[in-house]
Amino acid sequence: MTQTPPDAQSQDRPQNRRLYGRASGHKLTERQQTLVDTRLPALQWPDEGDLDPEALLPGFETYVLEVGFGGAEHLIGQAQRAPQTGFFGIEPFLNGVAKALVGIDDHDLENVRVKRSDARDEMIRMPDGAFEMIFLLFPDPWPKKRHAKRRFVQPDTAAEFARLLKPGGRLRVATDVRAYADHALPILMNTDGLSWTGEQASDWTENPPDHIVTRYQSKHLGDIDPVFFDFLKD
């Protein structure tokens, strides 16, 4: 099945910049392709109009957003742990979306909705205070200085994170690339409405108690050990 890369749908976006590389990778398995064809249309949401998590996934106590969920291990694991919470995952990479669909199918999850898209396009359509938690875990680091503008954490996206969190809600950004950590932390610390919770080194160098370690993290592909920046919405 041929699909239009999500970035091709976003040419009119202000400060248009591509944040990821390929939109798809190796050929999907037969099961993955079947789930993309049959399950994804029902789990996605429309490309236009306002996005209200409570309307799209009604009946849950709280809602969580994961931006760029990769292989979906963290998204699926968190959804299994918290069946009373509604989870929204946005990922531009087709293979990652297919893996999420397999996880949803394997565990009969009814508290997850996913979309293949650029998260910037989706976040701006969501209401203030929509989420109790937002995850941005190991985003594409674009480590070269000339590519810094392609990193997901920018002043505008950080402001969107703050807007989308409920008072007392949390944002978690994780990376294993020093250049990304040095880039992202000052931006987040200078974002109105966000307060960094880190007080001692262990607060950002150790896996948070509720964290789920993925295969990607276990590969230690970055140039530093993972760091976790947790922020509270004022």
Rank of each mutant, 00 (worst) to 15 (best):
R146M: 02
E132W: 03
Q84K: 10
D140M: 09
F138W: 09
V67H: 01
R116Q: 07
M126C: 09
D106A: 12
F93M: 08
D108K: 13
P139S: 09
F131N: 03
A148S: 11
A100V: 15
I134C: 01
G86K: 00
I90W: 08
E122G: 10
L101M: 14
I76H: 05
I124F: 08
P141M: 01
F131E: 02
G89W: 04
A158G: 03
R113V: 13
F135M: 05
E132L: 09
R146D: 00
F161K: 05
P155C: 03
D128E: 14
K115E: 06
F88R: 12
Q84P: 01
E110F: 11
P127Y: 01
L137H: 10
E132S: 14
F138P: 06
K115M: 12
M133L: 13
G89A: 02
A119N: 12
F131R: 02
I124Y: 04
F87H: 14
V114I: 15
R150D: 05
W142H: 03
W142V: 01
D118Y: 04
V67M: 06
A148K: 05
G71S: 15
K144M: 04
S117F: 14
D156M: 08
A148W: 01
D108S: 13
D128H: 13
M126L: 10
R146P: 02
G68V: 02
F87E: 12
Q78H: 11
I124G: 08
K99M: 15
F69E: 05
V97Q: 11
V112L: 10
F87A: 11
A98T: 15
R120A: 06
T85D: 12
F69H: 06
F88T: 11
A98E: 14
P83Q: 07
R150P: 05
D156L: 10
A162T: 07
E110G: 15
A79G: 05
E73C: 14
Q154E: 10
E160C: 04
Q80S: 12
I90N: 08
R146C: 01
R150Y: 04
I90A: 09
R125V: 10
L137I: 07
A158T: 03
K149G: 01
H147Y: 00
I90Y: 08
G86T: 00
G129P: 07
P127G: 01
Q80H: 09
A79Q: 06
A100I: 15
W142K: 00
R150C: 07
L75A: 05
F131D: 00
L101C: 13
H147A: 00
G89F: 03
P143F: 09
I90V: 13
V153C: 04
L109T: 06
V97G: 09
G96Y: 11
R116W: 04
P141R: 04
A82H: 10
L94D: 12
V114R: 12
F87P: 11
L109V: 06
M133A: 10
W142Y: 00
I76W: 07
F87I: 11
L75S: 04
G68R: 04
R113K: 13
A148I: 00
E160A: 11
E91W: 07
A119S: 13
